[in-house]
Amino acid sequence: MARRPRFRTTLTALRREGASERGSQTVEALIVLPILFGVFFVIVQGAVWLHAGNIAQAAASSAYNAARLYDAVAADGVAAGTASAQQTGTVLDGAVVVVDRTMTTVTVTVTGTAPTLVPGWDTQVERTVSGPVERWIAP
């Protein structure tokens, strides 16, 4: 019967004891945790951006409803849209409300930026609402 080499016996014994996997959990954590944190921050950033878009939409609708009235002017829409955008705090930062009122239509555009958690992500938000002006037509 042939003798087994000594180093093979030692390797087999180490494998049986689990010594070859020593430190593997640390390496796995170093690889997986940054990826999980990155995915988490991207999801949260997307939710904040969508929320800022909803606030911009609400501000544009509020400005449109104020500017479309029979005796209203564009400044009424700007005031209503700005008040609506600022009411929510800092979710829509630097909100700018632009109202274009003609004889038949009103177009409102609200732009601003959402807070950012992910560096380099463009968080510009723009929403536009357009519709008819309230008119009185003689019978």
Rank of each mutant, 00 (worst) to 15 (best):
L11C: 13
L11V: 13
L11T: 12
T12M: 08
A13S: 14
R15C: 10
R15E: 10
R15W: 12
R16S: 10
G18N: 15
E21W: 00
R22N: 15
G23T: 13
Q25W: 06
T26P: 05
V27E: 12
A29L: 14
A29E: 09
A29F: 15
L30K: 04
I31H: 05
V32T: 15
V32A: 15
V32R: 05
L33W: 13
I35Q: 00
L36H: 03
F37C: 02
G38M: 11
V39S: 00
F40M: 14
F41M: 13
F41D: 01
I43E: 01
V44F: 04
V44R: 03
G46S: 10
G46N: 08
A47S: 15
A47T: 15
A47Y: 06
V48N: 02
V48K: 01
L50W: 13
L50D: 04
H51G: 15
A52V: 03
G53F: 01
G53M: 00
N54Y: 12
N54A: 14
I55P: 00
Q57R: 07
A60W: 03
A60H: 06
A60T: 02
S61F: 06
S62Q: 10
S62F: 06
A63M: 13
A63S: 14
A63E: 07
Y64F: 14
Y64K: 02
Y64V: 05
A67N: 08
Y70I: 08
Y70N: 07
D71V: 01
A72I: 14
V73K: 04
A75R: 08
D76R: 04
D76A: 07
G77M: 06
V78L: 06
A80I: 07
A80P: 14
G81K: 01
G81C: 04
T82K: 03
A83T: 15
S84V: 05
S84L: 03
S84Q: 13
S84M: 11
A85G: 04
T88N: 14
G89P: 14
T90R: 01
L92N: 01
D93E: 11
D93F: 06
G94Q: 09
G94R: 05
G94C: 12
A95C: 10
A95D: 11
A95E: 09
A95W: 05
A95L: 10
V96L: 11
V97P: 02
V97A: 03
V97N: 03
R101H: 14
T102N: 09
T102V: 06
T105A: 14
V106K: 10
T107V: 13
V108H: 01
V108K: 02
T109V: 15
V110G: 04
T111L: 03
G112F: 00
G112V: 00
G112L: 00
G112K: 00
A114P: 15
A114F: 07
A114C: 15
A114G: 12
P115D: 02
P115G: 00
P115L: 01
T116Q: 06
P119Y: 00
P119W: 02
D122L: 07
D122K: 01
D122V: 03
D122Q: 07
T123R: 00
Q124H: 11
V125E: 02
V125N: 00
E126K: 09
R127C: 08
R127L: 09
R127M: 10
R127V: 13
R127H: 14
T128P: 02
V129D: 09
V129M: 12
G131I: 10
P132M: 02
W136R: 12
W136M: 11
W136A: 12
W136E: 12
A138S: 10
A138F: 04
